[in-house]
Design a binder for these strands. Structure first.
Lengths: 148, 148
DNA sequence: TGGCAATTGCAAACGATTTGCAATTAGAAT
DNA sequence: ATTCTAATTGCAAATCGTTTGCAATTGCCA
């Protein structure tokens, strides 16, 4: 049984350390983005991140740039929930962030699904088609109890 | 074993009949779009559809409108392959069009994966979270033999 | 504390998709 | 066959998420 993706919520200092180790500058904006992601363990769009930044908010372009940076370092993972909007989640310290979601078609509520099923199938798919380095992207859609 | 999604390639008259039955008008543009989809059994973007329209081409807006119409009727299925571009495939006559893809990260080549694995898991996911009407969206990514 | 490269904000550019509107056209009615 | 009308089209402009150029600012090393 895989550990729950959100069982470990890294502290902010740990996070900035990770940044520093990659020789990236610790700016207020980046800390704010990390802080926002840390406090909302669900996929967040750039705008959602921005709206959760406390004081003097930060330019959207900077948020996009921060998220890309963090994604490149592997500190956040990008998810595609079907609408045309990129969403990001903080990745645990040792985790690779791979998991899935169950999204309500009505209210867009998101449930994190931590078990990963088709991992075993990747090898089969890869072998059958001569592909290498096969990964997958899987999301579930349905209607949540409150909307039903 | 599920029937291959593309084992049956409907004839154009059959397709326009389906449209007519839905009391939609049979226009040259719509036939052209259907024709293009029919001859390329892989997910196609609006632009790809447009570039495959034979003679006097058709406005992109019209292609978008046609694809939406056809999707609403259930004649085409929309797929999201990870780049920000909607792609569509023609749905067989009795099929619901549900299947998956294996996409090359380098050249964007697409292999159709006709078996569907997580269908059984939908019920489990639904039950565990109180959701109803659960479906899923699954795509595989890797590097194809030619790019490797 | 100074200096320079990295980072930011702002506005403009971008690509995919949508929309308003006037002109065209498919198909039912005559 | 011709007429009529609502559905459909093309075109251009609008929208939305995201990216980029550039000048001003700022983190961090010396």
């Amino acid at each position: 049984m895989k550990k729950h993706s959100h069982s470990v919520r890294p502290q902010l200092p740990e996070l900035t350390d990770r940044l520093r180790r990659k020789s990236r500058r610790i700016t207020g904006q980046r800390q704010a983005v990390l802080h926002a992601l840390r406090n909302h363990p669900h996929p967040m769009s750039s705008k959602e991140v921005q709206s959760r930044l406390g004081s003097g908010d930060c330019d959207l372009a900077t948020i996009y740039r921060s998220l890309h940076l963090l994604e490149g370092i592997g500190m956040v993972k990008r998810f595609d929930l079907g609408d045309g909007v990129a969403r990001y989640e903080l990745v645990g310290m040792d985790d690779d962030g791979h998991h899935h979601h169950l999204i309500c078609r009505r209210c867009a509520d998101v449930v994190e699904i931590d078990d990963c099923f088709p991992q075993a199938l990747e090898k089969q798919i890869a072998r059958q088609n001569g592909y290498t380095g096969v990964t997958h992207r899987l999301e579930f859609f349905g209607v949540c109890p409150r909307c039903r």
